[in-house]
Computed example of a mutant assay.
Amino acid sequence: MSSSSVGQWGPVRWAENGAVRLAFDQWSERADGEPLLLATGLGANRKWFPDGLCRALAAQGFAVARYDQRDGGDSTHLPPTTTRSPISALFKKRGDAYTAEDMADDAVAVMDALGWSSAHLMGVSLGGAVAQRVALRHPGRVRTLTTMAAVPGDAAGLRAMRYVRLRTLAKFAGLKFPDTPEGNLAAGVAVIRLLASPKRPFDEAAAREAVARNLDSGVQDQQAQSRQIGAQWHGRKIGAITRPTLVLHGEDDPLIKPRAAKAVASRVPGSRLVLLPEVGHEIPEPTWERVATEIRALADTAHHLPAGAVN
């Protein structure tokens, strides 16, 4: 996870899915390019996507937009539920607040507000699972699917546990800092440290600078995270995904085991798996060009599909 800096972003705009309002914005460069929607992870706001990555994607010909999941960032936060810990939410048989279908529909609502009849999707962590579900529930709206650092979108409860490093999740859930700007700064740095690859030196000064530009209280909001992680999927299995698919995963991911990516790639027909060396549960600067190039190559494969195969 890498925090975004203030960059070439347009004004915050809003999409609606029923009573839920979803905040999104669009990168100003290449706004006339191929639509690419970015879906962020558990508890994180949209600004965690690095500007450098978005700039690299724009250079590859994409019109880039990002949005806050419900219960994250500037989007609607739902009322408290009985589940108050992301770990306990994994064990529940149903979510108290909303379904995973609702979260998939949120992405489509954002596309509608952008005026996009279809888009390439890139989801990271929880956003990767959401993007997989969008491809299942709304295949005509998805040009290509890139899922990164994510579990299979049809895994839940104990089936999802096999892919999660519980020790790291427990540390993440155990972060306790004051709900103040200083506390959110310390929490953000702690999250970056926790999710970074252990094979690269940790640059605390750079982490503090990045978090200072994006004081996201969502990294400490366990109730909101519980509602997100507890949202249950009732749809088809990921083997039914028909969109061209790229599966990215850090080889050193301390939160989601690489076996999760291998499971997704083995089950989604025709998908391509790319394991990124010295990468944790994050998108560090050395990977930006590689990731953008891989997504460009995936989009190019979609251009060569038979007429009508991608809407």
Rank of each mutant, 00 (worst) to 15 (best):
T147A: 15
T147Y: 12
V151C: 09
G153A: 02
G153L: 11
G153R: 13
A155C: 13
A155Q: 15
A156Q: 15
A156I: 10
G157P: 04
L158P: 04
R159Y: 04
R162N: 08
R162M: 11
R162I: 11
V164F: 06
L166A: 10
L166K: 02
R167E: 13
R167Q: 13
R167V: 12
T168I: 07
A170S: 11
K171C: 02
K171F: 09
F172D: 09
A173H: 08
A173M: 07
G174R: 10
K176Y: 00
K176Q: 12
F177G: 00
P178H: 00
P178S: 01
P181G: 05
E182I: 07
G183R: 00
N184S: 09
L185W: 08
L185T: 03
A186D: 08
G188F: 09
G188S: 06
V189T: 09
V191S: 04
V191Y: 06
V191N: 06
V191L: 01
I192D: 07
L194P: 07
L194W: 01
L194N: 05
L195G: 04
A196S: 15
P198W: 09
P198G: 09
P198H: 12
F202H: 08
E204R: 11
A205E: 15
A205K: 15
A205I: 09
A205R: 15
A206P: 03
A206N: 07
A207M: 01
A207Y: 07
A207I: 01
R208I: 06
E209T: 12
A210V: 02
A210N: 04
A210I: 00
V211I: 14
R213K: 14
N214W: 07
L215E: 08
L215K: 09
S217W: 05
G218L: 00
V219W: 11
V219H: 03
Q220D: 06
Q222L: 15
Q222C: 09
Q222P: 00
Q223A: 11
Q223K: 08
S226A: 15
S226M: 07
S226N: 03
R227A: 09
R227D: 10
I229G: 01
A231Q: 01
A231D: 00
Q232E: 13
Q232M: 13
